[in-house]
Design a protein around this nucleic acid. Structure first.
Length: 470
DNA sequence: TTTTGAGTTGTTCGA
DNA sequence: GTCGAACAACTCAAA
């Protein structure tokens, strides 16, 4: 049995509990060398996500320190960094938790092959999902393209109990050198937005767990109704933590199961939402092109517009359509956007403004602190009509009608829209502090006239969608 | 192989 | 104001 050090390559699994790889590593009793690598793939993520990742890495470094480990920070191509660390520490293994988006898979496949070729025990573990995507299968052994049958299969599959967080681990006598996190300047592309968004972040494993507990004790019972109201704090908001792995999905799953068994009315609905997350990973595993190509065939000739001045007004939260603008502003101020608001903002861009879904996806990737490659690829394609779910083509959200239905008392709009208010609150004003100065936006300016008449936009979209196959 | 039932999230119109 | 029908046709998954 080897007593050589093990290198633990952390990526989107920045926690200690419910961590199969870490639990297995600690159980070996061998010296552990945790590392986080700022590689080109990580450099390429969006501005807000990269900034937020820095907070998560710092929290993980502090958490590891408490159990006797030091997180080494290195910059460079992952394979080169890992090979150098293997040489420096005389480690004979490199372990990590699996990721599933195509960029990560391509990188990890190469890393694993190259390390194995020189005799290093390169090993990947589950941990990001309740089930590995390929283990959910139709009776014929294929994969699911429709949510409901996927869900019916997945919800009954066993989910192993979360591993307890290790309280102590064996470290190195001499640690490898580490770069200072500040030197990476992960918030550089956020410009002045970081100061605003920072007020709304809940960072690290302890905070994520407290957030889960507060959700289970509070909004969960009413989840069926309040989860659709963007002016009410009715959702778990755990996407921010799940995307960096600050809390384990098995821990969340089992907590929701317990709540259901204790009679919480909203638990089933919440579990179902976790099912949607799983479904998006199921899809990106089986059809990786979902992240940048139309998932359904026959959509490549659809007359979507590219990046236009209208799309720029959408990005700036200045379309003149309040629900849409409020949604976009929520994103700049908080780093996230309510689920229903995402549907409205995306539907407006792809249907009323007839803009290619990739324009919207790219912008979300740059602005969301809870950016998730699988969930966003599925979600944008679903809204645009070229993704999973045989949605009727005539499903076009009416932002005004949706506002009446889901924001009847205007809490959401008042919170994030300063125009027209004598004393706008901090989040409404925060928008003007968060966005680039070059946009030239100031509170007190008049609210813009609509980019497009809703009825005209709807008719244009319906016509184009109806004509698609004609 | 063929058949069958079902499919996240909507809107509008007219009774 | 409320409610049901119409908006089309196709794909998916299982029997």
């Amino acid at each position: 049995m080897s007593d050589a050090p093990l290198i633990l390559w952390f990526r989107r699994d920045l926690r200690l509990g419910d961590h199969p790889m870490l639990a297995a590593a600690v159980a070996t009793g061998r010296p552990l060398v945790p590392v986080f690598i700022l590689d080109p793939e990580t450099e390429a993520i969006g501005a807000a996500a990269k900034w937020r990742l820095g907070l998560s890495v710092a929290a993980q470094a502090a958490a590891l320190a408490k159990i006797g480990l030091r997180l080494t920070l290195r910059r460079g191509p992952a394979l080169e960094v890992l090979q150098a660390l293997v040489a420096e520490t005389e480690a004979d293994g490199v372990w990590w938790s699996r990721l599933y988006d195509p960029q990560a898979v391509a990188r990890d496949t190469g890393v694993k092959a190259a390390l194995k070729a020189v005799g290093v025990d390169a090993r990947s573990f589950a941990g990001h999902l309740t089930q590995e995507p390929w283990t959910v299968q139709t009776l014929q052994g294929g994969f699911y393209r429709v949510f409901t049958p996927f869900w019916k299969t997945m919800r009954d599959m066993a989910v192993s109990a979360p591993d307890p967080a290790p309280t102590r681990a064996r470290g190195m006598e001499v640690w490898p050198t580490s770069e200072p996190l500040q030197a990476w300047n992960l918030g550089a592309a956020m410009h002045r937005g970081a100061a605003v968004v920072a007020r709304h972040q809940t960072v690290g494993e302890d905070a994520a767990r407290a957030r889960l507990a507060a959700f289970l004790d509070g909004p969960l019972d009413q989840y069926g109704t309040t989860r659709d109201l963007p002016g009410v704090a009715g959702t778990s908001r755990l996407s921010e933590n799940l995307t960096y792995g600050e809390i384990g999905i098995r821990e969340v799953w089992h907590a929701a199961l317990r709540a259901r068994d204790e009679g919480s009315a909203g638990a089933e609905g919440f579990l179902r939402e976790l099912g949607w997350r799983a479904f998006s990973y199921h899809l990106i595993h089986h059809t990786p092109t979902i992240s940048n190509q139309n998932w359904r065939e026959g959509w490549d000739d659809f007359p979507w517009r590219g990046d236009t001045p209208d799309a720029e007004r959408w990005r700036r939260g200045m379309t003149g359509e309040p629900f849409v603008d409020v949604a976009m502003r929520e994103m700049y101020v908080t780093g996230t956007m309510h689920n229903r608001a995402r549907m409205i903002a995306a539907s407006y861009l792809t249907k009323h403004l007839m803009t290619h879904w990739r324009v919207g996806l790219d912008w979300f990737a740059d602005c969301l602190t809870d950016w998730d490659p699988a969930a966003n690829a599925m979600g944008w394609q679903w809204v645009a009509g070229c993704g999973p779910d045989a949605a009727p083509y005539f499903r076009v959200f009416n932002p005004a009608g949706q506002a009446d239905r889901f924001d009847p008392d205007q809490h959401y709009r008042r919170r994030f829209l300063a125009e027209g208010q004598a004393n706008p609150g901090p989040d409404a004003v925060g928008f003007f502090d968060a966005v680039p100065r070059s946009w030239g936006l100031r509170p007190g300016q008049p609210y813009p006239a609509p980019v497009i008449d809703l009825a005209d936009g709807r008719q244009r979209a319906l016509f184009a969608y109806a004509a698609r196959k004609a």
